[in-house]
Each structure stands twice: as structure tokens, then as C-alpha cells.
Amino acid sequence: MKSNRLTTLFASGRKNLLSVFYTAGYPGLTDTVRIGKALEAAGADFVEIGIPFSDPVADGPTIQASNKVALDNGMNLHLLVEQVAELRKISELPIILMGYLNPVVQYGVEAFCADAAAAGVDGLILPDMPLEEFMAEYKPIFDKHNLHNTFLISPTTSEERIRRIDAVSTAFIYAVAASSTTGAKERFTDEQIAYFERLKSMHLKNPFMIGFGIANNNSFRQACAYSAGAVVGSAFINVLRESKDLEEDISAFVHSLKDGKAL
């Protein structure tokens, strides 16, 4: 794999990276580009743009609802590829597309990887595509288009499996903070902290980002103490849902997360 924006970011050694997840086509169909641009301006380090799906089984109510709105708005994967290309013209942020496997399979995995890479996508996260299927079917396609695939691990993932995932990961590992679906939580439990410590002490070859349950500066800083950074999703979707002025609210949210300034 050649380096790209994503690997360059992680190679820079910068700490406390903030990745923001948002659903494509939400709250408005054409907001995808605008939100990405605003996140870059506000200081997010990379973005994970969600591919809406009718049956998001790994997601909690917040992201489920955003998926439904986006699909009702008419969002689809072909349109998303166009929107990413548009965002790429005005942004150098690393862009990851995250979503369930079925829309990608219907698009055609090869065609999708080619189109996504050409549009300026740096990596993919497909939570319901297991390691085994990726290695057996899709890895050569991803490699050919220089797209980094990020695997999830969770508190119940065995050490042996984490090592296996580390061995085939090429940019970073996504450490799910809890055995749960997505959703903003108040704080981390002692058990979760112990899990982060365990991960840190494994000295994996890939950096890891912590996601699921990051909601504020407190949980963001806690997560960053053990990892390369953290991903915020549902808490951000909540902001988008209520927002009257996207740019202003996005800026305030990112600053409150990174610097602890109150919203």
C-alpha cells in the first residue's frame, strides 16, 4: 500500500486526533460537503462519512434515525461518491466512508473501490465485513485502489484476534469502547479504562482510535490518553439534528470537544 492522506496523518505522530462521523445526506441531502468543509475548518483531523442503510444493526437510535432521514432525502451511494469528489476539491482532510456491506456489494465492490478512490476516499470501514471475508475476497481490490480498510475490535475481542487484526491493518484500528451499539454515553467505566490500558500495553504496530460513546471533552481526553485519538459520532449527529446554523454549531462542537470549552 502506498501512503495516502490517512497514513500521512498517522505517521505525523500527532496526538489527540479527532475523527468525526456523520451520516451522508443528513440533515439535508446536500449537507455532506458543507459539513465536511466545516469540520475541517473547525479542526477535525479526519472524517468518517456514513453510508446510509435501511438496517443498521450495529447502530443505536441516534444514527438509526439519521440513516432513515438520509434515505428519505434520497441519499444513495452513487450520489455520495459524487459528493466526496466535490468535497475533495476543497478539502485535504482524510476521508473514510463507513457503512454496511450490502450497498457496497450492490454497487459492485470493484467498481465502488475504483470510484471511491478516484473521488478522493482514503479508507473504508465496513463493520459487517469480517476479517475472514476481507482476506478471502476483497483485500486485493482494496490494495489495488490504495484504500485502507479499518477493522473494529471490541472489549470482548481476544488478544490473539487483536494481533491478527493488527497484522493485516494498514492505517489504524478502530477500538469500540464498549460492548454496545453506537451512542453517546456520559463517561467511561473502570472496565472500559482497563480495556484501553490493556490495548495500550499490547504495543500494536498500528495506532488505534477509540470510538462509540465519546460525547464530550472529558471522554475525548480520557480516550486520547490511551490512543492516537477518538471518534465522535452520535453526539455530533445530535448537534446536527438541532442545528439552526451548521457552520457555527459545528465549530462550537469541535472546539468544545478538543478544548473543553462549553458549548
Binding site: 442503510f53 435501511s54 452513487h78 456491506l101 450490502n102 450497498p103 450492490q106
Partner: peptide, 19 residues
């Protein structure tokens, strides 16, 4: 053919892969 509820199988879906 599509993927839902943990397996690859035949699935009623749109061209865009929504169930």
C-alpha cells in the same frame, strides 16, 4: 444476492442495496 442479518443470501432490495 445481498447481505442481511449476518449472511449472504437472496434479498429483496433496491438497486442501491436498501432492503
Amino acid at each position: 444476492p445481498g447481505v442481511l442479518h449476518g449472511s449472504k443470501t437472496l434479498l429483496m432490495q433496491t438497486d442501491d442495496g436498501q432492503v
